[in-house]
């Protein structure tokens, strides 16, 4: 690594390398250019290239409603929500449990929906950002906290942050900023608006406490 004279030998480019050999070589190094990630099967082609991708009809409880949906074995909850149930408030930022944009609550516990298989949430309650406000349109206290403090910039991370915050505040209703920051540390904001987010979520906590006293 510290080849101080800066004259590292340049290897001649490989001349007889197929795409597959190259990929094999690179896989050893830990990465590969693969198109076979981030993929989903629509319902229209069931059985045509089967190999265990067939769908099954499930009933899941989403935002207090029982929803019947055809689901593949390997289908993630994020895909089911976004592309089959039309709940696009749940965002995909990385699809690999790194960013938290897809955070939803399953029985009140925050989960990355990109890394939960839909068939595992049968008999459990899924709550997404769309189900947070009251049916009459009254915002959840945490949502109201964002409006009060102009929290977040682009807001692509916002649904995940709000869901994580709601879950954390249910069990920790009176946190310090540090405690709440730890509760939200599974969520990434690339606008890096953390200070204002934390202020908005603290306001949300205050709103929740006030609502529970009322």
């Amino acid at each position: 690594m510290s080849d101080i004279d800066g004259k590292e030998k340049i290897e001649p480019p490989p001349s007889t390398l197929s795409r597959r050999d190259l990929i094999k070589g690179v896989i050893v190094g830990g990465v590969a250019v693969s198109s076979a990630s981030y993929l989903f099967r629509a319902s229209t082609l069931v059985g045509q290239s089967a190999r265990g991708t067939g769908e099954r009809l499930l009933t899941i409880n989403v935002n207090g409603q029982l929803r019947r949906v055809d689901v593949m074995k390997q289908e993630t909850l994020a895909w089911t929500l976004r592309h089959k149930l039309g709940l696009t408030g749940t965002k995909l930022g990385c699809d690999r449990a790194e960013c938290g944009s897809c955070t939803v609550l399953i029985d009140d516990v925050p989960h990355y929906a990109c890394s939960v298989l839909t068939h595992t949430v049968r008999d459990r309650k899924v709550l997404t950002i769309e189900g947070l406000a009251s049916p009459d349109g009254t915002l959840h206290p945490v949502q109201q906290g964002v409006i009060d403090e102009q929290g977040f910039q682009c807001a692509f991370c916002m649904p995940g942050f709000i869901m994580a915050s709601v879950a954390f505040l249910k069990t920790n209703p009176n946190p310090t900023r540090t405690e709440l920051a730890h509760g939200l540390s599974g969520n990434l904001c690339r606008c890096q608006d953390y200070d204002k987010i934390l202020t908005a979520m603290m306001r949300g906590a205050e709103n929740m406490r006030r609502a529970s006293r009322a």
Binding site: L87, T88, G89, T90, T128, I129, E130, L132, A133, L139, Q143, V146, I147, D148, Q150, F152, A155, M158, P159, I162
Partner: peptide, 12 residues
């Protein structure tokens, strides 16, 4: 409060 916030907090 900016006019785009409500849609953002509700996932719309």
């Amino acid at each position: 409060a900016t006019a785009d916030l409500y849609a953002k907090v509700t996932g719309q």
